[in-house]
Structure formats: structure tokens, C-alpha cells
Design a protein around this nucleic acid. Structure first.
Lengths: 206, 206
DNA sequence: TAGATTGTTAATCGATTAACAATC
DNA sequence: TAGATTGTTAATCGATTAACAATC
């Protein structure tokens, strides 16, 4: 059974299911029905059962889903049952904030490299990490076999930096630049653009 | 013609069209066809024409869309032809980064208030803004008629803070907390969760 | 056992695309 | 005028939901 038959829409919901499971674990809840989970996430129970059934049979009739087991299975499906090394490019305000965010590690990601243009910043230590010059980036990423990068460079440099990252072997990019970046189809790219989300909401205001 | 017949999927693409127009303006490009715009954004030309046609006739046969005019129209449609006042709640690492982000103002948003729990931080000035105690939040937001808030508080406080914001009159929330927040249906909410986006990509890796 | 809830099927609903007459 | 591109229609494609037999 090929993975390619699963819609990206379904995949995009799996992290939300996982998030919810981990919240349940914190609360000490042992099992949950699709109905209850749906209510919590704002999805229909049908949709949750349908989504999960694409990957296996994780529930029990009468009782629902075992929270610990489903969490484990979702981690396996999403490939976050191990920690991924991530590179962060750009250490301006945004890059600094991303670097200091503590929410990555327990959800499967660890920033292991920082690259920056500004010679003033290169060489500084942030926790255990030294900010490296961007000229070392390709060799370093290739050598360390880093596959995921977060992009926090200025918009004008985003496309070129992405290209360089891909040449170095990166296969997934999370970009904070408010611009669409062209990548080959063997590379995944996702965007974080808070302003677009705000504009989406103002459409409905007033 | 009621707005309610327009899908949120369509609305979510409008900010991307606007972003692209503004990039064109910077580049000095005067007009663009749906085909060229689609290529740039990774959408089909049909989809772009269909989306835009829901709001009016903005193009010209033979030449495509006038960049300046379409930009203006999209701003009008999205209600960002004026600047919205925005409140930011939570001034930890994340809140500080959001506050220092310079990309809001020229896309329609201005942070006009900062609220924080920590008495150590309350009273400090950030640019022109004073960090206010969260206890002043409801009265202040109500008085200033602020309708949009960004939520950068710890996960455990997100739901309650959102509730308070809504009581104060906020009608759109951009939440950075990795949790689904329940809101009444007259309130819009969007989420920024970089880790979910990363997990969505690792599904396809290896 | 009786009640609850799953996984799955078929029906519905909605979104995308292909095609083309209209026209700049 | 001839070429290009729109706005729109109809066809296709895909996603969501309702319903229910199976079963814990």
C-alpha cells in the first residue's frame, strides 16, 4: 500500500491528532472516542475515523481509542518517533525567537545548527550552539546529513538560500519568509506567514 | 450577494495573491496573466481566475490583470485597505519576537498594546509601547475597541486568555499556542504551529 | 447482555480543472 | 486584424458525512 494515495489534507490533520493525544496524556485520560476528539478539535467524528482508518485499525468498538497507543502510532506514521536534526538559517529577530523556542524537542525536532550572514553575530554562542558563517553552511549540512531547515532570512534572500539548502541535501524547508519559493518536487516546503492568517480573518470582520 | 457563499479556502488564497501583487509592484511589473501568477504560486490559472471572479471582473482579455489595480481591490476585499489595531498578549520569548517583527505595518496591522503577567516585565517600554499588566487588559481593549489579538501566552493559559479577550470584544485571534481553542462562532481564530508543519513534512521524509 | 463506538460503504457535497465564447 | 487571455460553464475529481453492520 503506497503512501502516495493519502491526501496531504489528511496528513495535515495528523499532527493535530497527535497534539490532542499528548494533551490527553498530560491530563491522565486513558481513552477517547472519535466523537469526543472531534468535538475538541472541531472536526466531525466521521472524519477522524476515516482519517485514522487510512493507516490501520487503532480503535476498539465500545471504548474508542487508547490515548497512549494512538499517540505512539501517530508518531510512527509521522516519522517523529525519533528526533530530527534541524538547521536554522538567519539569526535576526525572528531567527533568535525560533532558536529560543522550547517547544520543538518534545515534539520531534532539535535545532543543531545556526547560520547567519552578519559577521558581528558569527561566532557567538547560543546555549551549546555556535552561530556559523553562512559560507560554511553547504559543507556543514552535507557532512552532518541534515535534512530539515527552517528559513528565517530576509525575503529578498529566501529563494536563493532555499536553493543552496537543497543543494546541500535538505529535503524539507519551513519558511518564515512571506513569499512563495520554487522548489523541486522531491523537496517539501511549508510556510509560516502570520500576516496572511490575519488578513484571512479581517475578510470576515466588520 | 452574500459573502457567506465564499469558501474559506478561497479566502485563504487571497492574501497570497495580494502578497504576489505587492512583490510585482516592487519589481516594477505592471500586469500579469493568471497563467504567470499561477506558475509563480503553484496554482492553476483556472483556479486563480475562478477565485478572483467571485469578487468581480478585475482582468482584461489579452493582457491579464493590472497589478496595481488588483492589489488595491484585494486590499479592499480583505479589509486591509486601512490599518488594524492589534493587541499582543504574552511577552515571553515568542511575544517579544512577534512584537519586534516589522512585517505587520505595511500589510495592514499595527500592534498597539502589550499585555503580560510577569510583574518584572510590566511597565517596561518597547518602542512607544508600555507593557501593561494583564489585569488591565479587558478594560483597555474594550475602551480602545480593539478587535484583533495575537495570543503568545503559555499553552496552559491559552483557552482562558482567549475567553477573556472575547469578553473584551476581540473578534479575531491569532494563536501561537499549540492547542485547539474553543470560541463562539462569531469569533475567528487561526493558529500558528510550526511544529505541526514540520511533522506534516516528516511524514514524507525517508 | 445492552450500550457504545468502531471501520467502512455509499451518498452527498464541494472544489478544481478543462474548455471555450467573448473580447481586449 | 490576429494573438492572447479573460470570465464562466460543465465535467471531473476529491473530500466529507451519514448510516450501519460488526464487535468490544
Amino acid at each position: 500500500m503506497s503512501q502516495s494515495c493519502i491526501s496531504d489534507l489528511v496528513v495535515s490533520r495528523l499532527p493535530l491528532y497527535l497534539r490532542a493525544m499528548d494533551l490527553m496524556i498530560d491530563k491522565g485520560k486513558k481513552s477517547i472516542s472519535s466523537h469526543e476528539l472531534g468535538k475538541q478539535l472541531g472536526f466531525s467524528s466521521s472524519q477522524i475515523r476515516k482519517d485514522l482508518s487510512q493507516f490501520g485499525e487503532f480503535g476498539k468498538q465500545g471504548t474508542g481509542y487508547d490515548v497512549g497507543y494512538l499517540s505512539e502510532q501517530l508518531r510512527r506514521i509521522l516519522n517523529v518517533n525519533h528526533i530530527w536534526d534541524v538547521a536554522l538559517v538567519g539569526f535576526g529577530n525572528l531567527g533568535q525567537a525560533v532558536a529560543s523556542y522550547s517547544g520543538f524537542i518534545h515534539r520531534g525536532f532539535r535545532i543543531v545548527a545556526l547560520y547567519e550572514n552578519d559577521p558581528e553575530k558569527v561566532g557567538s554562542k547560543i546555549g551549546d550552539l555556535v552561530i556559523q558563517d553562512i559560507s560554511e553552511m553547504v559543507e556543514d549540512i552535507r557532512h552532518r546529513k541534515i535534512k530539515i531547515a527552517m528559513l528565517a532570512v530576509p525575503t529578498s534572500e529566501a529563494q536563493n538560500t532555499a536553493k543552496t539548502l537543497i543543494q546541500a541535501g535538505v529535503r524539507a524547508i519551513l519558511s518564515y519568509a512571506p513569499i512563495t519559493i520554487a522548489v523541486p518536487n522531491y523537496v517539501r516546503i511549508e510556510y509560516i506567514d502570520p500576516v496572511s492568517r490575519l488578513q484571512q480573518m479581517t475578510y470576515y470582520l466588520e
